[in-house]
């Protein structure tokens, strides 16, 4: 076929004009989808708000969270005490604000530790398979065989009560969940063509795992991480409620619930407000996690 002169001129211009550089990075694609999830966006804003509160809480709390005032015990909500006072006359609103940091930190540290260990186990288990996979997965099955709260009570029974041990207990309980999720991702990615292609280039296993399999699993890890944060905050609060975690006078939300137990009939606000704080926080993390999943999960891509 003959080229016209016009074609020759155009060839220089065409490539750029006919394929505009789009440069859509995965991050941009994600944001485009996440934007549409209104509930998750609201939840995200609320989580940021919680984080800010947990940092500046002690400075903005209207009262000292630990200072008792025996003249004002068991007061209902008022202009002075927005959420009322407890049996020692402490301002509940201030205690909730200061307690935010404890709940978020306990949740974050425990899930983070569990996620790191679980991810490493999952990667090893899925990639190498054979006996090492059997050992890791049977270990996970054992942990899964216990009802969650029972396992954690058991661990604390061994380690002794205290907030640090709650973190350890929740982390241990989180490990098998991440191990399983990462393992199934690894199994899928291991047989993917691009991993095979990298193998045929002569890459070492570590490189394949770190550069190709882990990044492929990271979206599931993030989604699950967020969802687990909510659950872990709830679990930590439950353990404190049972007296196994934070000890009074700590303003931990679960411990506050526990302290209000005896006044449920006469002063329900002592339990209602910390309860609301727990519920809203857990709800926010779950909604945020749902939104992340919808935006990140390739299976629901349009």
């Amino acid at each position: 076929m003959q080229k016209t002169k016009e074609l020759e001129i155009m060839e220089e211009v065409l490539p750029q004009s006919y394929e505009k550089t789009v440069g859509k990075s995965p991050a941009k694609e994600f944001w485009k989808k996440f934007k549409k999830q209104k509930l998750a966006l609201i939840a995200g804003v609320f989580i940021i708000f919680l984080i800010v509160i947990s940092i500046i809480g002690p400075f903005i709390a209207p009262f000292d969270f630990a200072k008792a005032d025996y003249k004002q015990t068991l007061q209902g909500p008022s202009w002075d005490h927005w959420a009322g006072t407890d049996a020692f006359g402490r301002d509940i609103f201030s205690r909730i604000i200061v307690g935010t940091k404890i709940s978020l930190l306990v949740g974050f540290i425990s899930v983070f530790a569990g996620a790191v260990i679980g991810t490493i186990l999952g990667l090893i288990s899925g990639f190498y398979g054979k006996w090492i996979d059997s050992i890791i997965m049977r270990f996970c099955d054992v942990l899964f065989a216990f009802p969650g709260i029972l396992l954690e009570i058991g661990i604390i029974a061994i380690l002794g009560p205290g907030l640090e041990n709650v973190v350890v207990a929740v982390a241990i309980f989180t490990i098998p969940m991440f191990a399983r999720i990462v393992r199934s991702n690894t199994l899928m990615l291991k047989s993917s063509l691009y991993v095979e292609a990298t193998k045929s280039l002569g890459a070492k296993n570590f490189r394949i795992i770190w550069r190709h399999i882990f990044p492929g699993a990271i979206s599931s890890i993030i989604v699950y991480f967020t969802m687990r944060l909510g659950t872990s905050i709830l679990t930590a609060a439950s353990l404190s409620f049972l007296g196994l975690g934070a000890q009074p006078p700590s303003p931990e939300w679960g411990a506050m619930l526990s302290a209000g137990r005896d006044y449920l009939g006469s002063a329900p606000h002592i339990t209602i407000f910390p309860g609301m704080a727990i519920m809203l926080t857990v709800l926010a993390f779950n909604l945020f996690g749902d939104g992340l999943r919808d935006a990140l999960d390739p299976k629901i891509k349009d």
Binding site: M1, Q2, M10
Partner: peptide, 12 residues
């Protein structure tokens, strides 16, 4: 037009 070997000005 962008792929055509016989493209003319009019085609664009």
């Amino acid at each position: 037009a962008p792929r055509c070997s016989f493209v003319m000005k009019q085609c664009l």
